[in-house]
Write a protein that binds this DNA or RNA. Structure first.
Lengths: 210, 210
DNA sequence: ACGTAAATACCGACCGGTTGGTATTTAAAG
DNA sequence: CTTTAAATACCAACCGGTCGGTATTTACGT
């Protein structure tokens, strides 16, 4: 509702600041002054755009969901003709994203969820929508793989899609606890192997996750 | 005002309060007054036993690790003669623990890790020691299963043990985000299936996870 | 095209309740 | 009498949020 091309609005800068600060310090430990300093905006500007810190967090969660949705939509893992290969390529892509600083590759939604699930239904809901919405983007490929290669009927495409998100979130926690990103990669390797095994005997080309 | 009867020290009550409050609200959002109120101790008592809130959190993390270690040591999943069955029974046991309120079955260490990994090395370290130490209790059984039934050499017992913890932590996040414990159970089912598949063809008795 | 009024964006000083932590005091134990 | 445990009173910094005001854009009548 504002904003032509060049200059970035204060609102956007405040939203971008969330990605950086909240992932590094968590939601509660992040104070408004700090957000403003990071964004180069004053407190008055903050409360002009958001009626509360909670309101800002909800907007930040949605902003994150939209931003990452764009990133994943254009990622190369959609290229393989085989649906199973697309799913495996997704997992490999997620593993590749694990690089650099911990706060840079972890998920804003998972980080906030733990802190607010009992105190802020609004933020919690925004986080869940983002996570579940992202998982939904995997369902079609998983289902296609099930249709193509068969499955034993003991699980659904959606539950596997959500499981991938659980593994990723858990992988981030191990990385944060240990201080070692490799810890996350190791867990993602297990996820990759699991999906291979689910379709083993089918036409898996078997590209090992390095 | 010494309590007659069930003589629990103020220190222990403060530590127990951590389990309840931190898991429900997170570390940063938990304030000392609230801890004291929950424990039935005054602020003076709190700072008599802990030199700071951070010090208390470190003690709480260690307290948690010790308490749960006792719980798991005496749990029935060690009974099966077959090592693979013991591992699977462990996963099933973890699934059974998912019951009641979210804050009651989730992990204190995973919850705190996300908030403090960038700000408190002391708490972070205590969390990692607890998680890694618990994972270590699974390594012998996993290794024995590998020795008994073979493995393709692409993964280690320790990495699988840590992966189980990653899945559990991630499962808790999905449960918290969605507000539905079943979300966690579904993910744990996938973990169970993964371990079965890793040893498929071996002497798996195949007890389906309900 | 132009003046103007209203809306929007943004600023920064300030407020009052909260928070982690301290200083002092009292109670009980050995 | 000394040590340890725990309570009361208190504080200074902090933090989310408010408020009055200014700069900039948009809407519109003429």
């Amino acid at each position: 509702m504002t904003q032509a091309g060049s200059r970035v609005s204060a609102r956007d800068k405040l939203l971008d600041a969330a990605l950086k600060i909240v992932r590094a310090k968590g939601y509660s430990a992040t104070n408004v002054d700090e957000i403003c300093a990071e964004a180069g905006v004053t407190k008055g500007g903050f409360f002009h755009h958001f009626k509360s810190k909670e309101d800002w967090a909800v907007a930040a969660a949605n902003h994150w969901s939209e931003t990452t949705a764009g990133l994943f939509a254009e990622a190369p893992y959609h290229q393989p003709a085989d649906p199973l290969q697309r799913v495996l390529a997704y997992v490999a892509f997620r593993k590749d994203l694990v690089a650099g600083e911990l706060a840079e590759f972890s998920c804003l939604l998972g980080t906030m969820t733990q802190e607010v699930f009992g105190t802020s239904p609004a933020i919690q809901s925004a986080c869940w929508q983002g996570i579940a919405g992202h998982a939904d983007t995997l369902v079609a490929d998983i289902q296609a793989a099930m249709d193509t290669y068969g499955s034993d009927g003991s699980w659904t495409a959606q539950s596997l899609a959500l499981h991938t998100q659980a593994v990723l979130q858990g992988a981030f926690i191990l990385a944060k606890a240990s201080g070692d990103p490799q810890q996350a990669k190791d867990s993602i390797d297990h996820l990759y192997r699991y999906i291979e095994l689910l379709f083993r005997g089918a036409g898996t080309v078997d590209t090992a996750a390095t």
